[in-house]
Design a binder for these strands. Sequence first.
DNA 1: TTGTAATTTCAAGAATTATTGAAAATTATA
DNA 2: TATAATTTTCAATAATTCTTGAAATTACAA
Lengths: 183, 183
Amino acid sequence: MNLTPLNERFVLHFGEMGSRWGVNRTVGQIYALLFISPQPLNADDIVEQLGMSRSNVSIGLKELQSWRLVRLVHLPGDRRDYFATPDDVWEIFRTLAEEKRKREVDPTLSLLREALLQEPQDAAEEHAQRRMREMHELIELLTTWFGDVQRLEPAMLERLLKLGTQVTRFVDAASRLGRSKED
Amino acid sequence: MNLTPLNERFVLHFGEMGSRWGVNRTVGQIYALLFISPQPLNADDIVEQLGMSRSNVSIGLKELQSWRLVRLVHLPGDRRDYFATPDDVWEIFRTLAEEKRKREVDPTLSLLREALLQEPQDAAEEHAQRRMREMHELIELLTTWFGDVQRLEPAMLERLLKLGTQVTRFVDAASRLGRSKED
DNA sequence: TTGTAATTTCAAGAATTATTGAAAATTATA
DNA sequence: TATAATTTTCAATAATTCTTGAAATTACAA
């Protein structure tokens, strides 16, 4: 691996964590390398710096593109494909959250919705369906909230986050004024 | 698999999704079964209903306990171990979030903190460190916020979520009054 | 077009992870 | 303490996923 100790450490860490995040080691490493790189890299740059096969890099880049975590860029007078991560870490977070929802949450929501339409056949199924309803309501609430909040300007989102639990004061006030959206 | 079609569907889905959540198929299935079960189940119940080996169930239950997603219970006059998921889905969500943070976020925060203490050796490292700082700040902000909010009463949390982006009104108001915690 | 550079696909082997039955260990209680 | 019930561990193998070099495909420039 052709990196300074500091950068190697970072890249290796992302490789290791990759498996916990649902991508393999090489995908994690490629992402990490692109994230800290001062300029876009082409596949051969990545091969050279990470010491993995060209085909592996090709597959890994495809995977990262499918997550919309790296974008393809072209440099003038060079026909090779270059890759870069978005500059704005808020945008990265948003993309990651959207993709995770699409892959890890939405299929479950669909299944639950479908299951809740069935007529329970006995007491056990009735109980199971009640549990599924609880799960569905929670996930629905969380994802709806997240989808709404995510659409805020990064600056507003940042302020909201920094405010933290202080917002509860306002939530209390809103409740007293009967202004909360539901219930 | 010894389940009604409705329940089997649910259990199989969790098995499939398991790999995306970072657990294997059997762990996902065991969790799903316990989640919808009207009463706690022992290992042999699980073996019978899911048709997997006793040892696999033992390993899967250990894994779920390490996630604090199932708890061990004992029935009077029965020495076998029974297992159940918490009743409150909010509690389940909270546990899941805490464990995910511990396993998937905290190690990265540590690494970033350590990397940011190093003296950059050249321009490239300086840029890399700047990127790591951006990442660190974002993750720190998100996890701190989440940790705070998570400690709220479920009822308050639910109200907050249902309010959604409406809170931004109050955030605006707070800013105008110079009351926001920082900056 | 044709030739070359660049990228992707593929099939094989390597590595990792999951699953199992059998044996061992643990636990409760007679 | 001995026994029987229960749970865990382990080592073998099955299944899956990853990695690779070579071949095929695609994109582009002359």
